[in-house]
């Protein structure tokens, strides 16, 4: 998230938080995990109260004293209300759909009430706009967060900040929760020549799948990342039907094998191109296999197969499990 290296202070804070609020898929906010301080608005409110107090003293006006004290008491009571608005709130990580590198990931977090209503609870990571949600009493709601992705593999976002300023905005109560959120980030698909290998290795001739537009036109399907722009149906787009791509008949013949070794270029670019073809071939309902150094996936077709291939591509050469390290 943050490009800067964490400062010493931040590291200390993270270590302390890790001890105090360990990672869990479900976290309930309790007095151990909620912090609360006055906001800038709260400070301004106190300054205003001080001015009122001065007026009360100088005019020896009992009602001005009373109003100052009433508002000061409201300030104190708001502390409890803001705290209560957070206490008992339960956060649960939802499943996050994998995304292609560069896309925004949208992890879901489920907020469950601990019995009372929680109003205007804000969730997010520092440096971005927070999402606001109201949790009904004894109910729950789901919040979709946004994360930008910069590289493939497991994206383990930093601690999530949950905060609330309700009811008056004079105090902010917050917590840093580690919900064990993890997003699988696939490589960004890049269109290129097919790194084709026959099912039987050694067949020199190989087979190049011809470029788009050569086969029988089949119909339209929604655009997905990685599909060549050349196949976009611009007419449909101009009609306002959204991004559609022209579908063509699958190439008949023997099973295809996408081979990492058959490609040139650096590792990331190879993976990106492989990713593109996994997408394309899956759309064309073509069976294919994937060969990565140290990993072979037998030819098959279908969404599950594609997911397995993409997962293998995403995790090639990086940690198999999400690690707690900051991204």
């Amino acid at each position: 998230m943050s490009g800067r290296a964490p400062s010493r202070l931040q590291r200390l804070r993270d270590r302390w938080l890790a001890r105090r609020l360990p990672a869990a898929t479900s976290v309930q906010l309790t007095q151990r995990s909620i912090f609360i301080v006055p906001t800038t608005v709260g400070m301004a409110f106190l300054v205003a109260l001080l001015l009122m107090l001065l007026a009360a003293i100088n005019y020896r006006n009992s009602l001005a004293y009373a109003m100052t004290f009433l508002l000061a008491s409201v300030f104190a009571v708001t502390l409890l209300h803001t705290w209560r608005n957070m206490a008992g709130l339960r956060l649960q990580a939802g499943r996050t759909r994998p995304v292609f590198c560069g896309e925004r990931a949208h992890p879901w977090v489920r907020l469950e009430s601990g019995g009372r209503t929680h109003q205007a609870v804000a969730l997010g990571w520092p440096g971005q706009t927070f999402e606001l949600a109201d949790v009904p009493a004894r109910g729950a709601c789901e919040v979709e967060l946004t994360l930008s992705t910069t590289r493939r593999g497991w994206l383990r976002p930093p601690r999530l900040r949950v905060e609330s300023r309700f009811p008056l905005g004079l105090f902010v109560a917050w917590s840093w929760v580690d919900l064990d959120l993890a997003v699988l980030v696939y490589p960004w698909p890049v269109a290129d020549e097919l790194p084709l290998q026959d099912g039987s290795r050694g067949d020199e001739e190989g087979r190049h799948l011809r470029g788009a537009g050569a086969d029988d036109y089949q119909g339209l399907s929604p655009w997905q990342p990685g599909v060549s722009r050349r196949r976009l149906h611009w007419k449909a787009y101009s009609r306002g039907q959204g991004l559609l791509v022209k579908e063509f008949a699958a190439v008949a013949g023997r099973d295809l094998m996408l081979d990492y070794e058959a490609l040139g270029g650096d590792a990331e670019s190879r993976l990106s191109r492989l990713c593109h073809w996994v997408q394309t071939l899956t759309e064309q309902h073509t069976a294919f296999g994937l060969r990565l150094p140290g990993r072979n996936i037998a030819p098959a077709q279908g969404r599950d197969h594609a997911d397995a291939c993409l997962r293998a591509l995403a995790l090639h050469g990086v940690a198999e499990r999400p690690t707690a390290a900051r991204p």
Binding site: A66, L70, A72, S73, A76
Partner: peptide
């Protein structure tokens, strides 16, 4: 909020030095 603040206000009103 106002109702809950009232008792505290009374305490402040009585004991805050004039």
């Amino acid at each position: 909020l106002l109702l809950q603040a009232l008792p505290l206000m009374v305490v402040l009103f009585l004991f805050f030095p004039r």
